[in-house]
Lab assay of single mutants.
Amino acid sequence: KWTITVQGEEAIKWAIKVAEARNLDYTVHIDGDQAHITIE
């Protein structure tokens, strides 16, 4: 299990796209213009 933090709307969209493309189980916690994405 690991967490990445991305900043900015484009980076958030990209990170989610990558997680979905790899069929990963993930949760997103949005904090202002940052998102913390935890991959199970």
Rank of each mutant, 00 (worst) to 15 (best):
K1M: 09
W2K: 04
W2V: 08
W2S: 03
W2H: 07
I4V: 08
I4Y: 08
I4S: 01
I4P: 01
T5M: 09
T5H: 09
T5F: 07
T5S: 08
V6A: 03
V6H: 00
Q7F: 14
Q7W: 15
G8M: 05
G8V: 09
G8H: 02
G8L: 05
G8K: 01
E9F: 11
E9V: 11
E9N: 09
E9A: 12
E9L: 11
E10L: 12
E10F: 12
E10V: 09
E10R: 10
A11W: 12
K13H: 07
W14P: 03
W14E: 13
W14T: 11
W14A: 14
W14N: 14
W14F: 09
W14D: 11
A15Q: 03
A15F: 15
I16L: 07
K17P: 00
K17F: 10
K17I: 10
V18H: 07
V18G: 03
V18P: 00
V18W: 15
V18N: 05
A19F: 13
A19E: 01
E20V: 10
E20D: 06
E20F: 05
E20L: 10
A21E: 12
A21W: 10
A21G: 06
A21I: 08
A21H: 08
R22L: 15
R22E: 08
R22G: 10
N23M: 09
N23H: 12
N23W: 07
N23R: 09
L24P: 02
L24A: 05
L24H: 04
D25Q: 14
D25Y: 12
D25F: 13
D25W: 12
Y26K: 00
Y26E: 00
Y26S: 01
Y26F: 13
T27R: 07
T27C: 09
T27H: 05
T27G: 02
V28I: 14
V28E: 01
V28S: 01
H29L: 13
H29P: 01
D31V: 13
D31F: 13
D31W: 09
G32Y: 03
G32M: 05
D33K: 07
D33M: 08
D33A: 08
D33E: 07
Q34W: 15
Q34M: 14
A35F: 11
A35H: 04
A35L: 08
A35P: 03
A35M: 11
A35D: 01
H36D: 04
H36F: 13
H36T: 15
H36K: 12
I37N: 00
I37R: 00
T38K: 04
T38D: 03
T38E: 05
I39F: 14
I39N: 01
I39Y: 10
I39G: 02
E40H: 15
E40L: 15
E40K: 13
E40I: 15
E40N: 14
